[in-house]
Every structure is written in structure tokens, then in C-alpha cells.
Design a protein around this nucleic acid. Structure first.
Lengths: 223, 223
DNA sequence: ATTAAATTGTAACAATAGTTACATTTACAG
DNA sequence: CTGTAAATGTAACTATTGTTACAATTTAAT
């Protein structure tokens, strides 16, 4: 078990020996689950840490387009519902069900608090996880608040350019995928891309986009 | 000072005496700022805790409609950029500027980590703050991913009913306000409301809405 | 009670995106 | 090299929302 949680975001930075010592001091359970089993219902109390050791779970996921009811698979060794253990509403936002057989590590919230104050590396790890979620969501909201497809394209491309350099952007996505990511239909996306091409803003050829008029692109976002 | 932070979400639950003792053990600064001053630029490193003691600051705010660039005022004794102290991206998401003269409490991140592991009540408080942010954002995304005005109305009303009971809902908002909250135009909202009335789903009279057909209302959200 | 301001109702038209269906082009397996 | 599947281009039509402007109604202050 310790070899698995050794690699988890929550316990990273600790040695296996340290993990062993730490877990001697707290109460926890390892539970097995069977494929198809429902581990938590939406609305259930979150009063424990659940760390997926092996197997696959599925739950809600926020995708790029914010279709929040889409289902995401959790892979080991991820934490379940990390942002719902604390805060005002300690309930599962969605169903949590098993796609395969597997095992979870369960730590009661009280024990977890002890653990956090005893081992500051775990505390920092956990803070990183929860903060990361908040940051992720914050970014999604920025994207979601873009109203038109043109704006979404502009934002997407400008983001890609930041991590890059020149006016040529590699898009490792098909338009079909992008449309899905944006939460729009594929023909609408294509239509908008072609319109932007006609206006001389960019040139989109398969997996490569070249920006011809950066000013106009920024203008779309009101910058 | 301690009388102010005594009431802050971050330090609540501790007595003034305990706060005094705690602050003797860590490094911190109290800084004054002047109206108009920019306390942090978007992109600046977040390597410190900032707690507003008095005065008013303004920064980015995510509103109900997700217009993320709207400006929100921070009031004392709130924390600034709580979700950006940890996590992968430790940078201010927005400008932070002063609306009035005032004072802030500044604790370097390193010191703050010491503080968190030394006083688990503060740790739990902080976890509650960050988790609360994540939960808030998660809720906003659920709302933002509703595509049509009809869906937004349905979601809004059903949320209101949860905390209530009967088929009569008090809406302490004008349609003008609601439209703004939803991120749509007022005539469009009115039009949609009237259409829903025509279909016998609800009856909207000023500040009071009565649901005539709960099933249809749920159906709009695909439930 | 009267008036000004705020709120709500309405309508014509424009803009944007979804829907559906099919044509064309490209990639790639055999 | 060829055939098939995937990706992209295109078009007509519908649905939804925005825009603008004004009318009707309600609220609240004097």
C-alpha cells in the first residue's frame, strides 16, 4: 500500500519509512469495492478522506466547456472530493461509483486533521490540491464567461501563444474535439473559423494556426 | 489589531490572548496603504498572506453570471487571494488596488506555514476558506454551464425552493437585477419569463413567483 | 394626490449559434 | 495505390438572445 500512496499528490515528499510511522499514529481503513458499486451518493456527508489506491472510480467532472455533469474517471492515487472535506458544504456534489473492482484508503476527517497538523508536508500537499482545484475552476470560469465562439477561439489561441512565441500555434486538436471542448457544435466552430480567416485574422490549416493580425485577435477580447 | 483579526474567518475560534501569544511566535508586518495605491499587479507572486484590517480594497470578482472581470470590493477582515497562496500558480489573478486608505496584515508564506502547523484551528479555518472558494466556484460553473435563459430561470427558482417549501418563492430581486446576475439582457429575461407564464409553468408577480407546474420546471433542466 | 423614477411589458429587427444534411478533402490502413 | 474513415467545408433553416426604442405600470417621494 505505501508504495502506492508514496506517489500520491497528498503524501508526496515523504519517504516510505515516514509514511509507515505516520500511519501507525492514525486510524484508517482500507476498503475494497466491486465494479458497479456506488461509493457515495450526491448529498452524502463528506466526513472522511478517500484516496483511491487501485481500480477506477467515476464521478462528476468539470470540462473545459463547463458541462459539469460530464463524467470523469478518477485514477489512483487521486483523492476523492478534496474540496468538499472542508468548507461550508461538506456533501458529495455527485455520485461516486466504481468502474472496476478496487481499493480505497479511508481516513476519518478528525484523524486527517490530526495528520495535517502533525505532518506539515502533508498539510502543504493538501493545500496545494485544494488550491489547485480552486485555481482550475477559476480559469474555467474565465473561459465560460466568454459569450461568443469568436471570443473562445481568440482566448484559446492567445493562451496557447503565451506558452509559445511566434504567430504560429500548434493545435493538437481536431476541430471536432475543439468544438466539444468549447461546448459548441462543430459546424458553428468551423463557420466561425472560416469567418475569421476571411477577415484576415488567422489562417487555420489542420493542426497549425498562424496569426496574421494579432491586434484584431486581441480586440475580440476587448484588449 | 487583535480585536479586528479576532473576528476574521482565518483566526476565528481563538481568543485574543491566544492570538497575542501566537503572533509573538511569528514574523509579520502591518502596512498602511493610501487610496488609489496598487497593492499587487496581476501576475505578481503571491508569497504572503494579506489580511485586510481596515479600509477597502478592490479586485476581481466572479459574479453569478461569471463575468470574471467585474470588480469586487474586499471588506475587512477578509483574506486576499486565499486560493492563490498554494497550488500550482502562485500569482495574483488580478490587480489589487485600494479604494480608501487602510491597513493590511502581511505574513510571509513561510511563516504562515509554521503558523498553520502550530495552530490547527487556524489551519482548519484556512482550509474552510479555500474549500469554500472552490465550492463557490464549482456552483458558479454549474450555473454558467446552463445554456438558455429558461434553464437559468429554472435552476435559480429550484435552488430557491430548496431552502424553502411551497410553490411560492420570494424573489428579492428586480428583473433588471436578475438579468444582470444571469448575464443576459433585461428584455430577453422578461420575454422568457412571459413565455414560461404562457406555458403555465409559473406566475411571476413583482417579488413573488408561484410555481404552477413543477414537473415542467424540472423538465427544463432534464430532470 | 401628483409626479418622477424605477420597473416591467412589448415589438421589430439583427446577431449568433444550433440543427441537419451532404459534399469535399485528408489521413491512413491494407 | 486504393478504399474507407475521419475531418473539414458548406448551406439552408431554426432557435435563442441581443439591440433598441418606446409604452404601460408600479413605487415612492413630496
Amino acid at each position: 500500500m505505501y508504495d502506492i500512496i508514496y506517489n500520491s499528490p497528498l503524501f508526496k515528499g515523504l519517504t516510505i519509512v515516514e509514511l509507515n510511522t505516520l500511519f501507525l499514529q492514525i486510524q484508517f481503513q482500507v476498503k475494497t469495492f466491486r465494479s458497479g458499486e456506488i461509493l457515495a451518493h450526491a448529498g452524502d456527508d463528506v466526513n472522511r478522506v478517500i484516496l483511491l489506491l487501485n481500480g477506477r472510480l467515476q464521478g462528476e467532472m468539470i470540462d473545459f466547456a463547463g458541462n459539469s455533469l460530464k463524467i470523469e474517471e478518477l485514477e489512483p492515487p487521486q483523492m476523492v472530493a478534496a474540496a468538499f472535506l472542508f468548507g461550508p458544504k461538506n456533501i458529495f456534489p455527485v455520485y461516486l461509483s466504481a468502474k472496476t473492482d478496487g481499493k480505497i484508503l479511508v481516513i476519518p476527517k478528525k484523524e486527517f486533521i490530526v495528520l495535517l497538523s502533525r505532518e506539515s508536508r502533508v498539510m502543504v500537499n493538501y493545500l496545494n490540491i485544494v488550491s489547485g482545484k480552486a485555481q482550475f475552476l477559476s480559469g474555467k470560469i474565465t473561459f465560460l464567461s466568454l459569450k461568443t465562439i469568436k471570443e473562445k477561439i481568440a482566448y484559446y489561441l492567445l493562451q496557447k501563444m503565451k506558452n509559445g512565441e511566434s504567430g504560429i500555434i500548434k493545435v493538437e486538436q481536431t476541430q471536432t474535439n475543439l468544438a466539444d471542448l468549447f461546448g459548441v457544435t462543430r459546424p458553428s466552430l468551423t463557420r466561425t473559423i472560416l469567418e475569421m480567416e476571411k477577415r484576415g485574422i488567422l489562417k487555420w490549416s489542420r493542426d497549425q494556426v498562424s496569426i496574421s493580425d494579432l491586434k484584431q485577435l486581441n480586440l475580440i477580447l476587448g484588449r
